[in-house]
């Protein structure tokens, strides 16, 4: 049984459905990942790719689990930078009037640990800001 490299958690005052939409629809992801568009049909086994603003496939992975609005998992590899893919899990649990998102990242290559560990807390905060106020947060870094 493998052990996640990171586990992040955030509570957001929203519904599981809106959280799910933010995690799977192009708009939020494009805003967050610097203009990259996600290309996938979200069918288990299908490719998940991101297309850079210049039109190239720059991340490549596969849909592993797609169980709306509770559990999403896919693998991804940053092409030309990572030698193998890592695995992401997003778990959504209702908690009273809020939703708890648990993000687990498995099997990250050592050189990428630092960058990834900086990206996810910012991702969580801006997701919260977007879902609770409708605005993405201006982030430094």
């Amino acid at each position: 049984m493998d052990k996640p490299t990171f586990v992040y958690q955030i509570h957001i005052a929203t519904t599981p459905e809106r959280m799910w939409e933010a995690l799977t629809s192009g708009d939020f992801l494009e805003k967050y990942w610097y203009g990259r568009r996600f290309r996938t049909d979200w069918i288990v086994g299908s490719p998940v790719q991101t297309i850079s603003p210049e039109g190239a496939v720059d991340w490549d992975g596969k849909v592993l689990r797609f169980e709306p609005p509770r559990f999403l998992s896919y693998s991804f590899q940053i092409l030309g930078f990572q030698k193998r893919s890592s695995r992401l899990e997003f778990e959504i649990e209702p908690q009273g009037k809020a939703v708890r998102l648990t993000l687990r990242h498995f099997d990250i290559e050592e050189p990428c640990v630092k960058g990834i560990s900086e990206a996810w807390p910012a991702f969580c905060s801006t997701l919260k800001s977007l879902l609770e106020t409708g605005k993405a947060m201006e982030l430094g870094g």
Partner: peptide, 27 residues
Amino acid sequence: ARLVTTHWRGREKLHYLNPVPIHQVQA
């Protein structure tokens, strides 16, 4: 305080630093 999250690996409870609340203080 959600500064630590846990993950069960079989019967082992693993503890993880959750820096998200600190990131929100920063932001």
